[in-house]
Structures are given as structure tokens and as C-alpha cells.
Design a protein around this nucleic acid. Sequence first.
DNA 1: GCCGAACCGTAACGTACGGTACGGTTCTCC
DNA 2: GGAGAACCGTACCGTACGTTACGGTTCGGC
Lengths: 222, 222
Amino acid sequence: MAATQIIADTDEPTARQQAVLDAVLSLMVEEGDQLTMTAVARRASCSKETLYKWFGDRDGLLTATVRWQAARVRAGRYDRPTLDIAALRDSLKGFAATWLTVISSPTSIALNRLAIGHAASRKSNLGGIVLANGRFAIGERLRPVLEAGREAGLLTFADSETAFRTFFGLVGRDVQIRLLLGDTLTLSRDEIERDAARATDQFLTLYGGAVSPPQPEETTRS
Amino acid sequence: MAATQIIADTDEPTARQQAVLDAVLSLMVEEGDQLTMTAVARRASCSKETLYKWFGDRDGLLTATVRWQAARVRAGRYDRPTLDIAALRDSLKGFAATWLTVISSPTSIALNRLAIGHAASRKSNLGGIVLANGRFAIGERLRPVLEAGREAGLLTFADSETAFRTFFGLVGRDVQIRLLLGDTLTLSRDEIERDAARATDQFLTLYGGAVSPPQPEETTRS
DNA sequence: GCCGAACCGTAACGTACGGTACGGTTCTCC
DNA sequence: GGAGAACCGTACCGTACGTTACGGTTCGGC
């Protein structure tokens, strides 16, 4: 083996390597298609030789980039399930707003496009990594909230996974697929807040226990 | 111009050309990545020269393929809005089941992956075509049903587009993004029927007028 | 100050693939 | 049955890009 090891799955990239991965991300967002090794080397002001020494090959670089972005998104972490309806609503609304913010960000769009393109071929499970750190990670983080709500009698459902998937649908609707397909759809902070509130109210209407949500009016527009 | 015109946007492809486009579709589903002009010519038993004469270039071939598949999907067409709750429920459930069947089909997955990959670059609006014939087409077809339901007092909403987007989310949930990212998720006919019924009941719970849906129980699993 | 490791910049290589050219074959029309 | 168009199969060309190689530079350790 060479003196400098190829970056392993569990290794934390060095600061310089992180800069390279950030260059990949920025290039991915700006150029989309033209994500060549030469372009990455130029953007990151490093040599291609170094790229290959650190990441093995192009797939390794992309995989490291996806992991790097995933680690960054995983930062926020708020469990501590509470027991009153207002806190539950806030918690759900916060999740919804965060999720909408993530999926509508240029970085997420570019990353998902890349992973989806890769899912077409067999090699290197980029799609699996994105799924594990996106859709499934948020599901795992939301589950204790839902189950705490059920134990407090605020929610009624048989399977938390099914309940989460409904929430997921109410929040995301057609946003992600439209953005991925190139639809010019901008979500302002206000729209995200309103959509998050609407989805949360709808979810509570469907899964709320004895307690009824404030008013399920339909005032928000797309 | 050559004797044989390049296939125009409005032209119906000839039978032989349709066979070529079907070859593209099958190749796309089976090989995913390896959609080269040489492979298409081999699969379709035609020469590359013919491909270029008929479709101009690779993008033209892909565009024609997307249009061809879109025309095929657009076959079923059922409006005739009725006025009782049972018919409304059936109509919604039918839409939901059809949509789930479409988005979970290998052809749709491959086609959307291709269009999403293309959306990353600027050239040739494949993503727009897929959106127009998928998401937006079904929205336009469902709108009269929703508005007829509202006029009959069966549904309550301010904006049919917003109502449709909620229905869209309740039906699709995380299915499409998971499939696009390579998750092995198979939907049997029974599961599709149950999911369609669940989504319809949930939608009626949220948007039903004075009439209350039968029982909003939560028995279906994912 | 010297040595070697790490790294930068760039040139070079091999291949895959989009696109073109061309000879041979089939089909159509007269 | 002869001319020409359409088409098949294949060889060919040019380019883009992943990957490798190499000379020059910086930097930490002694």
C-alpha cells in the first residue's frame, strides 16, 4: 500500500480533503453536468494525482462527497419528545420546515440528481447512501417523536412507519420530483413555514387522537 | 434538406420508428446506463445512419422516446364527473392506483432517471416533457373531478391546485424518490389498491365537505 | 542546509462514444 | 428488369474524459 491511505469509509476527511469535497459540491451545483476530474482539480487547486491518491477513482470521490454532505446535514439533532400538543405540533412543523429547506436546496438537488443517475448503473451505491442519510435518517429521527405523541394520547396510529410516510407525503408533495426534473420552483422562507404548518395540521387531522387540531382551514396556496 | 425529414415534434412516428423507440425503452430499462447509439442500433436492427437521419442526434432520439412513451401513457382518459360520493371516491381511487402503477413501473423509473440526469445539463428539455406529461397532465385530468366534487358539495377547498398537490403527496409519499434512488421497493397489485384506497380516504377526510367519509381507520400497512 | 514525502501543474495515454462515410442489399416504382 | 431511394452493417474519425506519469516546488524533520 502507498504511504497515504485511500480515505476509508469511516475516516474523517482532513481539512484539505474537505476543501476538495466542497469544491466538488460547488462544481456540482454550478455546472451540473461538467463534473470532470480535471474540473475538480482545477476548482480545488490540487492535482489529479492527489485526487486519485486520496479517493481512489471518480466513484470514490463522489462517494466521499455524498458522505461529506450527509455528515454536514446530520448536524441538527433535536429529540427530547415532549407531551403536550403544542410542543408536538412545533416539533413536527420544525421537521417539515427543515426537510423542505433541505430538498429545495441546490446542493440537495444536484446531489440527488447525481445519485439517481448513478442508480441507473449498478456500480457504487450512491443512491443507497443518499437514501440512508436523507429519507431514512429523517424517518428514524421522527419516529420517537411520533411514538411519544402516541403514548401521550395525542396521536393514533398502528404503525409509526406508515404514519411517517403519510407525513412525508404531506410535506414534500410534488416538490422534490419537480425540482429534480428541472422545474423552476422557488420556495421562500415564508412559503416553507406555511407549507410546514399546513402539512402538520393535515397530519394532525388524520392522526390526531381525541384532541382536535385548532382549525383545519385551507388558506395556504401553492 | 434530405429526402426523409427529421421527425418533427408533432409527427406521429412510423411503425418502424416506433419499433426503434421501443428498442430504446427496453434498452433503457434493461441496461440503464449503456444507452449508446451503437447499442440502440444493434437492439433495433437498424443502422446508426438511419437513427441520425430520423432523429437528428442523440438528444432527438431521447426526446422522441419520451414523447412516444408519453403518448402511450396518455391512453386512458376518464372524465365525466359524477355527483355522488361513491363515484367520487372511485374516481379518486382509480387515479391514485393508476398513478402508483405508472411511477412504480420500470419504464417510468428509467425514463425519469434519464430526464433527471438531463435536467442537470441545460440542453434539451427532457425533464420538462416528462413533467408536462406526468405530474402536470394528471393534475389537469384530476382537476375537473375535484371541481365537480366541490360543486356537488362533496369537497371543500379554495384552490384545486393545492388540493391536488395534497392528494399527490398522499398517494405517492416516498415511493418515487425511493425507486429513483435504487431502493428495491415492489408494489403488488394489492398494495397499490390498498394504498390508493388509503390515500383517497385520507384526502376525503381532509377535504370532504359536510359528508363524512366512512371510517378513517388506519389499518393498511406500508 | 539537506532529504524525502506530499503535492501541484501539466502532459500523455487509452478508451468509449457521438457522429459520419461508404459499400452492399432490399424494396418501390415505372 | 432497371433506376433510384431507403436502409443495413461496419469501418472510420474526432473528441472528451478517466487515469497515469513525471518534473518541479513546498515543507517538516534532523
